[in-house]
């Protein structure tokens, strides 16, 4: 696949390009915002790897302009900025991922492939159920791009049901998913969390099999 690496450090860019080309990707390099915008105007990329501190501007502004145009190109921010405020700003600006330098090239390669797959509509760890997009790897649920916030216990119950998708899970099996929190589990805990999940996600997401348990169809 064709990748764009936006990185102003020649040393790092050269090593990155060599590694990614070695993995069979076609990789273009841009050392500035201007060069990146020129490349994005003339080519279709599967994924862009974007540094934030560029000599002629901020990679974040470039990303915002891209998203403002409606461009859904998967963008992985690869930066030296390790502050949480930078990470939040990057994700809020529309980045699909955020990795801090120095990164492991194998891990970076895996992330690039995952985002490319997702963009092509074949995400490995993403499920679509009743209009919901569920990212099991990152324990997140989205509806029309907006995240639905689940608490840890709600996610534990949903994740257990997703792991056995199409099969009925007994109340006892679901209680086991809650045991990891070490707190005392009330007799009706499973019913409570299933009810809360239905309220947040929609009633059709979890079905009840009377006398047997619950399932995600």
């Amino acid at each position: 696949m064709r990748l764009l690496v936006v990185e102003d450090s020649p040393d790092l860019a050269e090593a990155l390009l060599r590694h990614l080309r070695g993995q069979g990707h076609a990789v273009d390099h841009a050392g500035s915002v201007d060069a990146a915008e020129a490349a994005l105007d003339v080519a279709e990329y599967a994924v862009a790897l974007l540094d934030l501190g560029l000599p002629d501007g901020s990679g974040l502004d470039l990303l915002r302009r891209l998203r403002a145009k409606g461009d859904r190109l998967p963008v992985i921010i690869a930066t030296a900025r390790d502050q949480i405020s930078d990470r939040i700003a990057g994700l809020d600006a529309g980045a699909d991922d955020y990795v801090v330098k120095p990164f492991d090239l194998d891990e970076l390669g895996a992330r690039i492939r995952a985002h490319a797959r997702r963009a092509q509509g074949a995400p490995a760890a993403r499920l679509e159920i009743a209009g919901l997009e569920i990212d099991r790897a990152r324990s997140r649920v989205f509806r029309e791009g907006a995240e639905i916030r689940l608490t840890s216990r709600e996610w534990a119950v949903l994740d257990a049901l997703l792991g056995a998708r199409g099969r009925v899970l007994s109340k006892t099996a679901l209680e086991e998913a809650l045991y990891c929190f070490d707190a005392e589990i009330a007799g009706n805990a499973v019913e409570v969390y299933v009810s809360r999940l239905r309220t947040k996600l929609g009633a059709e997401v979890i079905e009840t099999r009377r006398g047997l348990g619950y399932l995600v169809p």
Binding site: L12, A15, H19, A80, Q83, D86, V100, K101, P102, D104
Partner: peptide, 19 residues
């Protein structure tokens, strides 16, 4: 921000070259 950039980028480059 600058110190992180100046310190982390060369390390990242060195790690990439070691790969």
């Amino acid at each position: 921000a600058h110190a992180a950039h100046e310190l982390r980028t060369p390390v990242a480059a060195a790690k990439a070259r070691l790969q």
